[in-house]
């Protein structure tokens, strides 16, 4: 993640929010628009950040992960059931993490142990998550009439949360705070600890890592499973922070957008977070356009993040390259 790219992303976010300010209908005050844009952006970015961090750990260890969507969806369901049965939101989050780890273990077993094509394995998990959560939600939730246990309360930082425009930044729900903490934490772990170095070496050149005495298979398992736990927190966001109910397919492709954020951010935590915010800002413009009379075709704005991801992947503005061993199963001799 170069500084240039980071500045580019921040600039794009500024452009989107500034655009909303300039184009808003004159009878809405500027501070309301800015506050609403910020709040929507942060809300949308939370699951993306967590999903992208999950994918980051996975892909840095050399396992391609298009299964973030499936992991988050099943974790959303697990979190809902866990919270609804025990009436404890904390247990709900833990249940979501457990389901996320379970799906991640399946991904690791398929793609690391059985050496199934990693994209196929991810596809299997996505289809499986959609099928099983859809089936169980109709069978279990409707028959036993489970009611959600409510939403996690917002935690506010006393004085800062009362500031006029940037208030929403300091008044967020716990999972959003967790996401914000995990970004620097993941950065530290991946780039400044021995385990992180091993993880990256396994993702770049597994044979050399093996020769250096690193257990490639175990490192990949660990990375994928920690990623699953983070994706699980991201999934819990949907049923414990966003709406207190589970609906089939409620992640609605956020896992794939998280993947895009990961690539956009050049496989770094800070980059992935910035990209998540950018995607969040584009979504905020999309959502607020009608309310504030902003005359932009919302869908065209909504396309930009995806188009930018394609452009960046194609190397037109600054090249990003994935860890070299992504997609290649490792076979110990």
């Amino acid at each position: 993640m170069t500084r240039g790219r980071f500045a580019f992303i921040i600039g794009c976010i500024g452009l989107l929010i500034g655009g909303a300010e300039v184009l808003r209908s004159p009878d809405v005050s500027a501070s309301i628009v800015a506050a609403s844009m910020l709040a929507t952006m942060l809300r949308f970015a939370t699951p993306l950040t967590l999903g992208a961090l999950a994918g980051l750990l996975c892909e840095r260890s050399g396992v391609a992960n298009i299964a973030i969507e499936g992991m988050m969806l099943s974790a959303a369901f697990g979190a809902f059931i866990g919270a609804a049965v025990t009436k404890s939101l904390l247990i709900g989050v833990l249940a979501g993490m457990a389901i996320g780890v379970a799906m991640a273990t399946l991904h690791a077993w398929l793609s690391v142990s059985l050496r199934v094509d990693q994209i196929v394995s991810g596809t299997v998990i996505n289809i499986m998550a959609a099928g099983i959560t859809g089936f169980l939600s109709t069978e279990v939730v409707r028959r036993q009439a489970l009611v959600g246990a409510g939403l996690l309360p917002a935690l506010r930082i006393p004085v800062l949360a009362d500031l006029p425009v940037v208030g929403p930044v300091f008044q967020q729900q716990p999972i959003a705070w967790v996401a914000l903490v995990l970004v620097p934490l993941t950065h530290l772990v991946i780039f400044h600890t021995p385990w992180g170095l091993r993880l990256r070496s396994v993702g770049e050149l597994p044979r050399a890592a093996h020769a250096a005495g690193i257990n490639v298979i175990r490192t990949r398992y660990t990375a994928v499973m920690i990623g699953g736990a983070i994706a699980g927190i991201g999934g819990a966001y949907f049923t414990l922070e966003s709406v207190p109910a589970f609906e089939p397919l409620m992640t609605n492709g956020r896992g794939f957008i998280a993947l895009a954020a990961l690539i956009f951010g050049g496989w770094t935590p800070a980059g992935a977070w910035a990209a998540s915010l950018l995607f969040g800002a584009a979504n905020a413009l999309h959502i607020n356009a009608q309310q504030f009379g902003i005359p932009v075709p919302a869908q065209i704005v909504g396309m930009f993040p995806y188009l930018l991801t394609i452009v960046i992947l194609a190397g037109v503005i600054g090249r990003v390259s994935p860890p070299s061993a992504v997609g290649t199963p490792y076979e110990a001799d």
């Binding site: 391609a64 298009i66 994209i119 492709g253 794939f256 957008i257 993947l259 895009a260 690539i263 396309m303 995806y306 188009l307 991801t309 394609i310 992947l313 194609a314 190397g315 994935p322």
Partner: peptide, 13 residues
């Protein structure tokens, strides 16, 4: 550019 990612993105576009 990996076609898995570009086709997913093109789905959204």
């Amino acid at each position: 550019a990996h076609e898995v990612i570009t086709t997913i993105m093109l789905n959204y576009v």
